[in-house]
Design a protein around this nucleic acid. Structure first.
Lengths: 210, 210
DNA sequence: ATTCTTCTTGAACATTGTTCATTTTCAAGC
DNA sequence: GCTTGAAAATGAACAATGTTCAAGAAGAAT
């Protein structure tokens, strides 16, 4: 075990190729959907053999899962970038940012939420955990807004609220279903948060600008 | 065109087989998930050749779509069975019934919402319309509760609210994700509707029993 | 330079959706 | 009932795609 950072030529090529495969797979999923992702297409575009893809990722699910992992990581970064001064605005911001991100990367998000494993193999725990953590990002602002509430209940509320927003957005962006105009979807989400905060006894942003 | 109901022996066998194929496909999807559905398994279980499946449904997507169509039909029947005397209770009932139905037929619902067509062929319009119609079932009670509101806005609200409930339930039942205990999920949904109705200025059911 | 380890390759295989020439089945006409 | 023509069923062959692995190539170690 040499902890000095001496990357062998072999390792360099390996990791460069790994990145390349992921980049190509992500591009295909993003543009043509998960169902259009084929091993041979990825291998050819990456300039390597199909065997190398398997060598690097074990099986094809491994490629998909790695892309999904990076998707939820990117999502988390975006959500963490939402300003936290005003907790009410933060909640709106989280919803709006989720909508933006979903609209920009619809097929990647669908891959994250819709991909099923072969047979009955379990979905990797770390990805599930990251999704749950992302959905828990509404927790801190809710705690500030509801200081007297039980922390466990707030945790549940955070997941519930974010899941609700997810439902509105994922179905709203489903071009299959009655394609809600994207601008209207933004209003729809804002209004939903409005009503829900009101119901929680929190004064919403109201007539002020976003 | 003979509108007399004389079914030839041929037609009888044909429709019997059709039903049988659908029943088997539905059972496989329901128990082992859409990804485990294979033409040969269906054909063998139905006691016919793979060619017959294609003869009857055009392609394999045709089988899946027909199962999905029947799923949304069954869902609609269940949702229409929710009592409509009290509009507030009706809203709770629609959410609770959706939860029940989703819990009973999780894989069938996932097939409905997650199946993607081959290439870029469009999803059949009639199925999309039926889903939208089902999600519009919150419209009538909302109209009764908000008599002064614009009808178009109520239509949007109905879709939004149902989509939110869908998000909470579909993620909550996702055993992949932090498996919310089913009993707790019911409370979660009820509470969500509670808060949202309050936010809309409607008195929720409150402390009374379901 | 030689050897050893590791990775890469791509042909072969396995699985699964799809097609279609052939056979079978059935209904209609005699 | 037999003949015949149309329709359907068949399943072998094909196509597309995920997976494996023996052989070879490439880099590391001595």
């Amino acid at each position: 075990m040499n902890n000095v950072q001496e990357e062998s030529l072999r390792d360099q090529k390996k990791s460069r190729r790994r990145l390349q495969i992921l980049e190509i797979a992500r591009r295909i999923i993003a543009t043509k959907g998960l169902r259009s992702l084929k091993v041979r297409d990825v291998a050819e575009a990456a300039g390597c053999s199909v065997g190398s893809v398997y060598n690097e990722f074990g099986d094809f699910d491994g490629v998909i899962l790695t892309v999904n992992r990076e998707t939820v990581q990117a999502l988390t970064v975006r959500l963490r970038g939402v300003p936290a001064q005003d907790p009410v605005r933060q909640l709106y911001g989280l919803a709006a940012t989720y909508l933006e991100f979903f609209a920009e990367h619809a097929n990647l998000l669908r891959s994250l939420f819709e991909h099923r494993m072969e047979d009955d193999r379990p979905y990797p725990d770390d990805i599930l955990q990251m999704v749950m953590d992302a959905f828990a990002l509404m927790h801190p602002p809710l705690v500030r807004l509801l200081p007297d509430a039980d922390d466990v209940k707030i945790a549940l509320l955070s997941r519930t609220l974010f899941s609700a927003v997810h439902g509105i957005i994922s179905l709203g962006l489903e071009e299959r279903m009655v394609a809600v105009p994207p601008q209207m979807l933004r209003q729809q989400v804002d209004q939903f948060v409005d009503v829900h905060l009101t119901g929680l006894g929190i004064a919403p942003v109201g007539a002020r600008s976003s």
